[in-house]
Amino acid sequence: MTKEQAVLSGFSFIGRMARTTNEAEMKGEGVISSQWDAFYKEPFVDRIPQQKEEAIIALYTDYESDETGEYTFAIGAKVQDEAEAPEGLSKVTVPEATYVKFTSRKGPMDQVVMEAWQEIWEWSKANPNKRAFIADFEVYDERAQDPQNGQVDIYISVV
């Protein structure tokens, strides 16, 4: 997996949001898998107005504290700043921040995304106090179209 650091401009995002914790997700009581199920069953991303790009974004934001606290998970898209969220979806502004970008290997999407997060968690342990917990996000672009041979970028906000 490759890593690089950069300052990214802020962006507006519209998507379907839910609160969760890593503890709930690990126990199978979280919302992330059901959010993805809903994404595949109901193409709500098609209802998002003024999308800036084709990529689907999985956003982690509104952190209560760190990886042990509650946060908001959302699936959606980057939009023009003036876009308004349709019913059932919400809009957030992700501020400019410094990010470390982790790029997964190519392979089955469910495996490569989990492997990437495992590496991020190991990186976090080796770099205490580096994560900013402002916003983190996964980018599912054209490289993620084939679920059996996909690749994803994960951006982690850092201080």
Rank of each mutant, 00 (worst) to 15 (best):
E53K: 13
N149L: 03
S34K: 14
V112H: 02
F13Q: 02
A77F: 00
P95W: 07
R143W: 02
M1P: 02
Y99D: 07
Q50S: 09
T72D: 10
E87W: 00
Q5C: 14
A74C: 00
P147A: 04
V159T: 14
E122H: 12
T68W: 07
V7L: 14
E54G: 12
D146I: 03
E82Q: 13
E122T: 15
N22S: 11
G76F: 01
N22E: 06
Q51M: 07
V159Y: 10
Y63F: 15
M109N: 04
K27M: 08
Y40C: 07
V79H: 01
V100A: 10
S104G: 04
E64G: 15
F137E: 04
Y63Q: 12
T103D: 01
N127S: 09
S12D: 12
A97L: 06
I48G: 02
T103F: 05
A83L: 04
D66Y: 07
I75V: 15
F44A: 05
I154Q: 06
K41E: 14
Y155P: 03
F11D: 04
A116C: 15
E96G: 14
F73P: 01
A74V: 12
V159W: 05
T103W: 06
I120P: 01
S90V: 12
F11L: 08
K78T: 12
V152Q: 02
F11C: 05
E142T: 12
D153S: 08
I48D: 03
W121A: 10
F102T: 05
R19Q: 07
V45Q: 05
A135R: 02
G30Q: 08
L89T: 08
G88P: 08
W121C: 07
